[in-house]
Amino acid sequence: MHDDHLHAFMPYPEVPVAHAPEGPLAGLRLAVKDLYDVAGYPTSGGNPLMLVRSGIKQTTAPLVQQLLDAGARFVGKTVTDELAFAMNGKNAHFGTPVNAAAPERIPGGSSSGSASAVSGHLADIALGTDTGGSVRAPASYCGLFGIRPTHGRLSLDGCLPLAPSFDTAGFFARDAATFEAVAEVLLGDDPAPLTDEPALLVAEDLFARATPEAARVLKAALTRASLRLQDMRALEETVSGHEELYWTFRRLQGREAWEADGAFIERYAPPLGPGVAERFAYARGVTDAEVEEAGRVREVFRAHLGRLVNGGDVLVLPTVPDVAPLLSASEGALEDFRTQALHLLCLSGLSGFPQITVPVAMKDGAPLGLSLLGRPGCDRTLVGLALRLADAAAVRVA
């Protein structure tokens, strides 16, 4: 990128990447998180020693190639939080991309540069990954459409792993038409589509995990949307044992993260940034007994959530508890917010079910997203419903 005033892109020498001259994504600029391989470029994973070890890649990740073959034009690889094991968008080595929708606030991560590039009009489409919220959180913070698909729906070949049983590919767009076009290219037909008029189950207990003012503005958006999407039903309790689910996610993610990167860390002792070092230290200490119990809890939860949505209904919840924290917030405050956010974000990860966040509200001058979570395999039709929700929520009532 020649005009990267947002610090969204890695400063690699520019290498041409071929794309189809025509196709459904022709004319759209594509940014790619620096976890995916792109021929002619290294893959850093947000860490300098990983960058040194990478070398120049000779092949392009299949998911990236799919977008290039549809006509998208590659414009650069984007900054990621270090080893994808963070959610604030602050990389101690490569900097913090700017949240163009709220420049005084964090962009979110770990797909920080991807969200920054799209929110700042340096790209129209961006690929990210989502393990614990790394597409959904920055999409909410930056006022974007973002999706975590059904686990395994999109290829992660040629992409650095963090926690494979949670890792998913995802993508961002600023506007509904672009988001839908990318979904059509990448998702294709659903194996388990939603019905034409699914019920929207408003998860009251999950709204209670948002700040009161954030819950209020999101509920106001739902009230506007209800004029067109009339089948909305309040559910007082959708999830029990929030704290247990949070620790279930942390333990399973931690074990898998250590399996992915532990040997690299032990051999090279790379300097890890704030928060990342502590998370890997925790990951190293997760016990077999904790993993076994966490696996049991995950299966029980997945079955429970399946009973709620497998009939074709869709859960409505806040994407995150509030707008993005300020850049000036302390590391302790950012870690506390991350913990609260993970109580909401871990539900899709633990279940493997798809979740889409849509920009529907503003609070304190910053964007705030609302999420839809559906049964596995309904991704494409869930996109259609999400776009209808976004359109309906934009209606203003005199």
Rank of each mutant, 00 (worst) to 15 (best):
A70C: 12
V286P: 09
L326V: 00
A117I: 06
A294W: 11
R255K: 13
P274F: 10
C142Y: 02
K363R: 15
T150Q: 03
A386R: 10
H2G: 03
R73W: 02
A72T: 15
P48R: 08
T129Y: 10
V98Y: 01
V291L: 10
G254Y: 10
V15Q: 01
I147G: 06
C346R: 04
L315T: 12
P318Y: 04
V397C: 05
S140R: 13
N47Q: 14
V300P: 00
S330C: 07
F74G: 01
M87L: 15
V316C: 08
E184A: 15
P198L: 07
G109H: 00
N91E: 09
G133K: 05
H93N: 08
T168C: 15
V185M: 07
L382P: 01
A289L: 14
P107S: 08
E278I: 04
V395C: 07
N88W: 04
E293M: 05
N88Q: 12
G285H: 08
S240E: 02
Q65E: 14
A303W: 15
P359R: 08
A277C: 08
E104V: 10
L127K: 09
L206S: 08
A324G: 12
R302K: 14
L387K: 13
R250N: 02
P198N: 03
A210K: 05
A394P: 11
A394S: 15
Q66K: 14
A173Q: 04
R279I: 14
R296L: 06
I125T: 04
R136A: 01
A26K: 11
V217Y: 09
T178S: 13
L235F: 06
V300Y: 00
R148D: 08
G377R: 13
I56K: 05
V316Q: 01
L154K: 00
Y41G: 03
V397P: 01
G352F: 06
G170L: 03
F94P: 08
L389Q: 05
A234G: 08
E243I: 12
A214Y: 06
T357K: 08
V297R: 07
R224N: 12
P138H: 00
M1I: 10
A394C: 11
A281L: 15
L30D: 01
E236C: 03
N310C: 09
